[in-house]
Design a protein around this nucleic acid. Structure first.
Lengths: 128, 128, 128, 128
DNA sequence: GTGGTCTAGACCACT
DNA sequence: GTGGTCTAGACCACC
């Protein structure tokens, strides 16, 4: 058997980044909307303010949020950026799934067929 | 401040079940092949033997492994069962991905299109 | 008169980033060469290790250095990246000078003429 | 740990001299115009009056300002002096930039080419 | 020994 | 009150 390895060594700040990205892509955080303050988020996540700061400045470097020194932080108003992010996240989600299936010995044709089945079921579900 | 638990509340025994299922489906553990002993697995996973015990009996209930009192535990020789499992795992993998994307606001058409792109890239990659 | 403002509020970690970029561009740090460890640099700059860490991880995000967990950090071996950086730094150096001169009321023609004089003097200097 | 001083060892009085020269060259301070009093400037720069005194007498030695015992200090009316200063500042600005680039390993040809690019961009910008 | 993450707590500038 | 920077000191995984 293989080496033992249970997940969850993902750094907190990365998890927070993902959390916020999800909300931006899903529209829960709208373009231009103000984020909670560093200290407020630190309290909510029960985490040190520095950890939040790190997550947020990383998001800033990716141009997904911007900050105004004394006013606070805001979701980018550049909807193009958000669309790009949205697409990237979808691609990576799907690629990961495909990747894992290939490791289990599935080939592209099989994966495509199963994917097709999944979508069809979905459609019939939404017909109810 | 205390640590906030983000993910990782999946019980260990479920993670172990997944691990073993993966090996069976991928063929790393062949039909009829003997599994490591409970104590050996407990050592490898650095986990209490009871946890292993629980995982294995669950797999027995699902007829994916069977035990012979004195000899040990073995992967099922029923290849049909394995095929079914294989298919189920693929479906659930893909459904999960689709599900997460729908939560992010994607509709079926978008997902299909991105899926198509992913596969095409894969093909062009393997052409190199 | 204008607002009072003496320079030097530039964060230490940004100054360190510049320092290292300079060395990379000038070739003092060659592609693939190992950098001092975080702790060593912290001692050299008389600064907290976290500050060094921050500078270096920023450089890593810019793909100018890469790190290997247990071995240390290294200058990128991608000489293209270094060339790009080199060019960017030159452009920004010159743009800054031009910018400051424009604030002093110089127009492009004047600036070009003075620039030409500077270069000629330089050449005659290197003739000696 | 103590703080390491990176830049900012330029004496304050020199910074103030530069500030005033900039204003004179840019025309913010016109020929013959009266300067603020020492005390007023000391307040504005949040600096000891002696520091201002020193900066101003240096400027007097360079014939860029002159003082009338009881009335105060004034910008020189010798526009030729100002033109010379203006030129000198431009030259030194550019020479500094060139100098720094040479330290980074650029040769004159490269610098000229990049300078040319910068100016062209500037022109195309003003065309918009 | 290496890099990486996190906390606790401080100080700054800006409004 | 906001974000931003920095220190001091801790712990982890990896080899």
């Amino acid at each position: 058997m293989m080496k033992y390895e249970f997940d969850n060594n993902v750094p907190i700040y990365l998890q927070i980044i993902e959390e916020i990205k999800n909300k931006i892509v899903a529209g829960v955080l709208a373009p231009g909307q103000q984020l909670d303050s560093v200290r407020a988020m630190a309290a909510k996540f029960e985490v040190n303010p520095n950890t939040i700061q790190r997550a947020l400045s990383e998001l800033e470097q990716q141009h997904l949020v911007y900050s105004q020194r004394t006013r606070g932080r805001f979701v980018t108003e550049d909807t193009r950026m958000i669309k790009v992010l949205r697409h990237k996240m979808a691609v990576s989600e799907i690629k990961n799934a495909v990747e894992r299936l290939k490791l289990l010995g599935f080939d592209s044709d099989e994966i495509e067929q199963i994917f097709r089945e999944s979508l069809e079921e979905d459609i019939s579900k939404s017909d109810h």
